[in-house]
Design a protein around this nucleic acid. Structure first.
Lengths: 246, 246
DNA sequence: CGAACCTCTGAGACCGCTCTGAGCGGCCGC
DNA sequence: GCGGCCGCTCAGAGCGGTCTCAGAGGTTCG
């Protein structure tokens, strides 16, 4: 079976081959970081730096999804979207956009089922949105039962943004939610504070790893409160999430 | 089973294959947004930019329904309608028309079973009208029980434009109604303000997401008033509609 | 022509979220 | 045992998201 580099089973096409994603951004550094994160999911990635080469790459790759910066040197996002749909009508598109440009020309994009994230974003956010898009579009094999993630008696419904432990509802802030999502996607696996910072916080976050400790403590208070602990500290290494039974 | 991108079961032909819809509009952006929204319903979409290519596409696609702009570069919509009926006599037609356009001729249309919406329209409106047309024409399989939607003790009858909670009638303004319809079509699913804006407000609406907050507060006053709340805010993400029991 | 309603804008208040800094306690090496 | 380091938690400041109110402008209907 196709797997991610973390050993977790990858989200694949229905036939088991890797999902294909095209990353389009004129900032080479950002494109590199993005494609790295997506490759880590076990997907097949190509990159392009402008609209024209994006179209060429799309024709060749026939991607299942495209991560597309709205601000491109040659064309605007809407035109690219149209061209992409003529190349592959069922392609999913995840737009990357500056925060203040949202109102600008993006209007109507989410209407077709496509989605967007605003810069600066976290890699987990991008990956999560893409997985959501691909799953809803029926391009991904249903290995798990949809948008539900389960570790021990801890359950996360990504679409409803709902977390329960032993059936009890747990309310989480956005950052807490994203941190827990990252932990749950990597159960029984030690994650360093740096790793967590790189994945869960925005790429331009200048702060310290201390924040991770703080949010872990928040999570413990809500997730482990009075119960068998699932979040464990590995001194000098990082944190692990494990089912309580173990 | 054929499903929409939201995971909800799609309205299909009686034989289970996707409904076929032809979108005819000379504005490529609008055609793109429309076909995106309809594709999202799990339907098979083709587009055309003028009357001649519309006819050609219709002959090839044999669509169940046509979304047709009245103002076309080469002919007017009514001529196209007549030709369409020679190609496929039982096709449903949804007209797109300017607000101040000829009321009399349009009136004749609705008598024939077809329908129309005035520009600028919201995508939810178009989708709802189309679903109504297809259902009434017997082209869609009745998977759900007709025009009735139920979430918890909240019931919406789309055709009667009537909403009740726990049996009590709730009076809603047009915008409130459409917002609630969108929420009810996506229960237990977090919807961002942008998503809501793109679907419920007209495509040319330039305003801010602030309006969504305002209308959510109106809805709460009417739907949740004094009862167990069903409309929940997910800070930083959007809103969810959930049965009170949960 | 007037009244009622609907929709949207703007302003203000509130409150939850995020992060900083500091202090404390426990773990490890010496 | 002792000092230093690592990790945990608390308290608080600043910020930004969200809610609500009041009112203007437009539309519909009587």
């Amino acid at each position: 079976m196709n797997t991610t580099r973390s050993g977790r089973p990858a989200l694949t096409r229905p036939d088991g081959t890797p999902l294909r994603v095209l990353v389009v951004d004129d900032d080479p550094d950002l494109a590199e970081v993005l494609s790295g994160a997506l490759r880590y999911e076990g997907w097949l990635i190509r990159t392009a730096g402008d609209g024209a080469s994006a179209l060429a790459a799309a024709r060749e790759l026939m991607p299942d999804a495209v991560v597309l910066d709205v601000m491109l040197p040659d064309t605007d996002g809407f035109a690219v979207l149209r061209s992409l749909h003529t190349v592959k009508p069922d392609v999913c598109v995840l737009f990357l956009t500056a925060r203040d440009a949202v109102e600008d020309r993006i209007a109507g994009i989410t209407a077709g089922g496509d989605d967007y994230v605003t810069k600066p974003f976290s890699l987990e956010e991008v990956v999560a949105r893409l997985r959501g898009l691909l799953r809803r579009a029926g391009m991904a094999r249903q290995q798990d039962e949809g948008p539900r993630m389960i570790v021990g008696d801890l359950v996360m419904d990504e679409e409803a943004r709902e977390v329960t432990r032993a059936g009890e509802l747990i309310e989480l802030s956005p950052t807490e939610f994203e941190l827990l999502r990252f932990l749950m996607r990597n159960p029984r696996r030690v994650l360093s504070k740096t790793q967590i910072l790189d994945r869960v916080w925005s790429y331009d976050f200048g702060g310290r790893a201390h924040v991770v400790e703080l949010y872990i403590s928040y999570l413990r208070k809500k997730v482990d409160a009075g119960r068998e602990p699932m979040i464990h500290t590995v001194r000098g290494a990082g944190y692990v999430l494990k089912p309580a039974a173990s």
